[in-house]
């Protein structure tokens, strides 16, 4: 049976998580996989908890919504609390440890990466945090090859920001490599 990947990328409106979700889905298209992407709208999209969901599979995807994610990315405290307990047994939770403290989940593997701090200090632009995080998510799950992610990122980002975003991707990937089991 092929594996159904359910990703929930959550954070605060403005952190670029819906863009990250679309890029992840486009990387999956480039990799020849089946994919469905959806997002939450409404007040959540304006400063509250915001989320994008991506389902990736080798076979046709029927039900288009995430049931229980096997991968959760939490980029701020509110969604970490809101969605933190909804995770598959032995799932993966990646949290931005520069913004979230005291996060625990017994069911899943929790990987702490100081995403926002790395984007700000090592990449030099806080706006690349979503791409850095996405690269870490892909690095830890290997759901698609790095080359497809890179291509998808370069297709989406504004002209002139290629170097910054590639740097963010490399740093995210390196942090993921440290945690690969």
């Amino acid at each position: 049976m092929s594996k159904r990947w359910e990703f929930r990328l959550s954070g605060t409106g403005g952190q670029g998580l819906i863009t990250a979700g679309i890029i992840l889905a486009e990387a999956a298209v480039l990799a020849g996989k089946e994919v469905v992407q959806s997002q939450s709208y409404g007040p959540e999209a304006r400063g509250g908890a915001s989320k994008a969901e991506v389902i990736i599979d080798e076979k046709q995807i029927n039900y288009p919504k995430v049931v229980i994610p096997n991968v959760l990315l939490a980029m701020s405290p509110q969604p970490a609390n809101k969605y933190g307990s909804e995770i598959k047994e032995n799932g993966l939770i990646i949290i931005d440890s520069s913004l979230i403290s005291d996060f625990n989940n017994e069911k899943a593997r929790v990987v702490e990466i100081p995403i926002t701090k790395l984007a700000k200090e090592d990449v030099g632009n806080i706006l690349t945090a979503n791409i850095l995080a996405l690269s870490a998510v892909v690095g830890l799950t290997k759901v698609v090859d790095f080359e497809y992610l890179k291509e998808a990122v370069l297709n989406r980002i504004p002209k002139g920001t290629e170097e910054l975003n590639i740097k963010a991707m490399e740093i995210g990937w390196q942090w993921a490599e440290k945690h690969v089991v």
């Binding site: 889905a25 996989k33 469905v36 992407q37 995807i61 288009p64």
Partner: peptide, 9 residues
């Protein structure tokens, strides 16, 4: 709404 807003390959 689901069909209208979801993105799919």
């Amino acid at each position: 709404e689901i069909i209208g807003h979801m993105r799919e390959k």
